[in-house]
Design a protein around this nucleic acid. Sequence first.
DNA 1: AGGGAACCTCACGTTGGCGTAAACTTCTCG
DNA 2: CGAGAAGTTTACGCCAACGTGAGGTTCCCT
Lengths: 165, 165
Amino acid sequence: MTTSEEDQAPASLRIGEAAERAGVSCRTLRYYEELGLLAPSLHSAGGARRYTEVDLARLVRIRELQELLGFDLGEIGEILQGEDQLADIRSQYQAASTAGRREMLDWAVGINDRLRTLVRTKQERLAGMMAELEAKAQRYRTLSAELTAELERSAELHPADPVAR
Amino acid sequence: MTTSEEDQAPASLRIGEAAERAGVSCRTLRYYEELGLLAPSLHSAGGARRYTEVDLARLVRIRELQELLGFDLGEIGEILQGEDQLADIRSQYQAASTAGRREMLDWAVGINDRLRTLVRTKQERLAGMMAELEAKAQRYRTLSAELTAELERSAELHPADPVAR
DNA sequence: AGGGAACCTCACGTTGGCGTAAACTTCTCG
DNA sequence: CGAGAAGTTTACGCCAACGTGAGGTTCCCT
C-alpha cells in the first residue's frame, strides 16, 4: 500500500548516466549548474551529484528551449525562474499574499504567451520552408525522369553493352 | 516590348541596404562572402558590392538555415553548394555527362530528403512543445480564476475601501 | 580490502560568429 | 566641385558554451 507515496524511488542517476540520457556531456551539466539553471536535487555522501527523473526532465526542457527555440542560456534562466516561482506557489500555497501571487501568475502567463507566440511563428516559418522543399523535390523528380529517359534512349542506340556474368 | 528581358533591372542594392532589409549587419555580409557563402553578383566601378534581389533571397535562405534549423555556417555552405551545382546543370545543360548530372541530382535529392526529415522532426517537437504550453496556459487560467474569486471574497468581507474621486 | 572506473574541483584553451576601430577611398547630392 | 555619408580592407577583440587536462577523491564490485 504505497498509495500516498506513489513513486517514492529517487531513481538517482549519476552525472554520466544523466548526461548520456540527455545527449550532452558531463561538463555541460556542471556548466548549467554553475549558471544556476539545473542543480541536482541530491548529493551522495562524498559530494557526487545525483539527478532524479525530474531533474532530467528539466534538462530536456533546457535543451528544447536552446535548440528548438534558440534562446541563450541567460534567457532560459529567466524563463525557468518564473516557472519555478509558480511551482513554489502551488506547493506552499500560503507563502505569498494574494496580490503577490497574482503578480507572479501574471508574470508566468506573460512568459507563456510570448513562448506560444514564438512557437507559432516558428511553426509557420517551418511550414513555409517545408513547402519550398517539397516544391523543389517535385522539380527533382521531373529532372530525374528526364535523365532516365535520356539514359534509355542512349541504351537503345548502343544496345551492346558488355556486362560481366 | 521588353518581353524577352522580363525583369532586366538589376535593382542593385548597396551593402547597407541589403543588410538592413535582411536584418543583419554589413559585417555579416562581408563575413559570409569571406566564407564563400554569398558573393554579390555585381560590383561598382570602384569596387563596392552590389546585391541583387536574387542575392538577397540567398541571404534570407542562409539565415533560415541558420536560425530555423540551427546549422552552422560550414554546413550551410555544403547545403548551398549542392543546390548551386544543380542550378548550373539547368542553365548550362550540356556541361556535364548524363552520368555526372545523375550524380549531382542524386546528391541534391539526398540533401533535400535530409532537410525535409529534419524539418518534419522539428515540426513534431514544436507541436509537442506547443501542446505543453497550452496545457500550462489552461492551468494558469484556472489558477487565475481562483485568485479572482479569493479577491472578491475578501472584498465582501471588507466593503469599505477608500477610493479617491 | 583493493583497484579500476567514475566523480570532484580548478583553471586554462578553443571555436564560431560576428563587433569594432583605424586608415583610406568612393559615392552621391546640393 | 566639394563634403559628408557610405563603402573598403586589415586586423585585433569578444563572448557564449562548452572542451580538455591535471591532480586528487569517491564509488562500487568482487
